[in-house]
Design a binder for these strands. Structure first.
Lengths: 190, 190, 190, 190
DNA sequence: TATGAATGAGCATTCATTCAT
DNA sequence: TATGAATGAATGCTCATTCAT
C-alpha cells in the first residue's frame, strides 16, 4: 500500500471549503493546494486539473449533502418533522461562514460550464424529488412536486438574500413556509 | 470643451456586458478595456480600479434596470398588466445570452464584498417596493410586501434554474404565478 | 530469474522514437515514460536520469544504424549496389514520419553536450569509414575518404532540406550523386 | 512619443542570441526576458507569445543575414572574391560561440512548425539565389543553380560537423571548395 | 487626455527527480 | 522491482496596476 499523507475525502473537504468561500474563479490552485495540505503539483497529480478537481469536489459535495441533509427524509420521524429537520440542516450549512448554498453559488458562477452543469442540475433534481417525496405523503404526487419546486426556488432566493443581508430570517422563513405548506395540505387531504 | 470619444454610459454598458457574461473575477481588465474601447490605462484612469469600475457598473445597471424594468410600474395600464409587463421585461434581460440576473449573479459571487453589497441590496429592495406597490392596489400593504418578497425569492431561484437548464419555463412560471397571486387577492378583496 | 516485463531494447526503441519525434528538450520524462510502458520512476530507475537515458538511446540508435544501414556494406553485392542500397536504407529512416536523421537532429540541438557529443561524432566517423571503404574499391584511399566526407556533408544538408520542404528529391539526389561519383572514379581507375 | 527603454532591434538581437545558444525549446521566456532587459510580461507585451517572438527573431535574423552576409554579393569586387568574402562572413557567424548556423539549427529543431518553416525555407532559397547569381557570371544559369544547391547542402553539413568537432576546418573547406568550383567553371567557359 | 511600455505578483500547469512502500 | 505520491523549481502566460510621455 502506498503512502498516503492525506486521504482523498479530506482533500476534497478542504478544497470544497475553498471553492465555497472564494468561488470557483477566485479559488486558485495555490490556495487549494495550501488548504489541502498537498503542494500544487501534488494536488494536480491527484486530479489532473482545476476543472477536474472541481468536478470531484462537486461529486463529493453532493455525497455529503445526501449524507447530511437528504438522508433525513428517511429517518423514523413524522414527515413534517423530517421536512423541518432537513431544511434546518441545510440552513445550518448555508449559515456556516455565511457562505450560502454551494450548489447555487456554483450554478450562477459556472453553471453554464458543461462539466459542472450536470452535477449541479442532478443535485437540485434530487432535492426536489426528496422533498416532493415528503409532501406526497399528505397530498397528490403532482401537488407535492409543485410544492417542492416552488420551495426550491424560494430556497435559492432566500439563500441569496441571506448572503447579501446576513439576516438568517430569510432562511428561517423557508422552514416556516415549508411547514405551513405541509399543514395546509394535510388539512386539505383530510 | 473637447468632444468625448466615448461617453461614459457606453463604456459602462460594455463593461456591464463583460461582467455579466464572465462574472466578476473572470472579467479581466484586459477584456473590459477591449470591450470598452479604451485601453487598460484609460479604463483605470476613468474608474481608478477594477473594484471601483464594478461599483460604477452596478450603479449604471441599477439605473438601467429602473429605466427599462421598474419604470413599467408607473405606466398607464391596469395594475395586473403592469406587473406582467414588468416581469416579462425582466425575463427578457435574463434570457439575453442566457446570462440570468446580473444582480443575483454578482450577489452570489461577490455579495459579501462591502463595496458591492449595498448597491445590490438596494436594487433588490427597490424591486420589492415597486412590486409591492402594485400588489398594494389590490390588497393590504402588508400582504403586498409579503407577496413581493416571496416573488423575489422565487424569481431569484427561477433565474438560477433557468441558467442551469436553459429552460425558459422557469422564468415564465414566475409571470404566471405573479399574475395568479394578483388575481387571487383581487378577488379576495372584492 | 524473474521474467522481464519489458526488455531494454524495446524501451530504448520507444524512447528513441520520442526523442526523434520531439527533440531532446521537448521530449519530457512523462512522454518517454508513457511511450516506454514504464512509469516515470521506473524509467529513471533503469537509466538514472534523462541525460543518461539519452546516452543509452544514442548507443542503441548507433547499434541499430549499424545493423540496418552500415551492415549493407558487407553484403555480397557489387560495391556500387551496396552503396546505393546503404543510402536508400538511410533515406528510408529519414523519411519515416519526416523525422530526418536522428544523429544530425541531436547534433544540432545538443551536440555541444559533452555526454552526447562523442556518441554522435563516432557514428559519423563510422559512416565515413564505411562509405569510404566502398569507394576505396574503385579509387585511392585518400580520394575515397574525400568523397565519403563530401557525401556526408551533402547528406546532412539534404536531410535538413528534406525536413524543411518535405520533398524527398533532396534525399534521392544524394543517392544519384553517390552513384555518379562511383561511376566517375570507376572509369578513371580503369 | 512613448518611452522606449530598449528598442526592438536590440531586443531581437539579444533574443536571437539566446535562441541561437540554447535552441528554441531550451530558451525559456525567463532567459529571453533577462537577456533582453525586459521582464517576462514586458517581452510578451511586445511579441504576444514565445512563438511570435521566435517568428520576429527569425525575420530579424534574416534581415541581418542579408545585411551582413548576402549583401556582399553586390559589392564592387571580382565575383570570385565576392563569393569568398560572403562565405567567410557566414563562417564567422557560425564560429561565434561555436553556435553554427542559426537557420539550420532551427530547421532541425522546429523546422516542421508551420510558423517557422516558411521563414527558414525562404532564407535558404535566398542564399541559393544569391550564390547562384555569382556562379552564373562564369557558367550557365542551370549549372550555377546546381553548384549553389550543392554548396548549400555541403555548408549545412559542414556546420553540423563543425558544431560537433569544434574544428573550423569543416567550414574553411567549404570556402576552398566554393572557390575551386568557381575556378573550374571559369576555365571551362573560356 | 490618452496610450504604449513596464512591472511584480500570480496564474494553471509541467518539469525532472526522489521517496516510501 | 515496481509504482503511486510527493516536491521544489520552472514553464508560458495573464493579472491588476503604474509610469512616462
Amino acid at each position: 500500500m502506498p503512502i498516503q499523507k492525506t486521504n482523498k475525502a479530506d482533500i476534497l473537504l478542504r478544497c470544497w471549503e475553498v471553492f465555497h468561500r472564494e468561488g470557483y474563479n477566485a479559488a486558485s490552485i495555490s490556495k487549494l493546494a495550501e488548504a489541502s495540505g498537498l503542494g500544487k503539483p501534488g494536488l494536480l497529480h491527484h486530479f489532473g486539473s482545476k476543472e477536474q478537481l472541481m468536478q470531484a469536489v462537486l461529486e463529493y459535495a453532493r455525497e455529503q449533502f445526501h449524507a447530511y441533509v437528504l438522508s433525513v427524509a428517511q429517518e423514523h420521524l413524522p414527515p413534517e418533522q423530517r421536512l423541518e429537520k432537513l431544511l434546518r440542516r441545510q440552513n445550518r450549512l448555508a449559515k456556516y461562514e455565511r457562505r450560502g448554498c454551494f450548489f447555487a453559488n456554483m450554478a450562477l458562477e459556472t453553471g453554464r460550464d458543461e462539466h459542472f452543469n450536470p452535477l449541479i442540475t442532478t443535485l437540485f433534481e434530487e432535492w426536489q424529488q426528496t422533498v416532493a417525496g415528503l409532501y406526497a405523503l399528505v397530498s397528490t404526487p403532482e401537488t407535492a412536486r409543485e410544492i417542492a419546486y416552488r420551495l426550491l426556488l424560494e430556497y435559492e432566493g432566500a439563500v441569496t438574500m441571506y448572503k447579501l443581508s446576513n439576516d438568517t430570517a430569510h432562511l428561517e422563513g423557508i422552514v416556516e413556509r415549508a411547514v405551513q405548506y405541509f399543514k395546509q395540505h394535510s388539512q386539505t387531504q383530510i
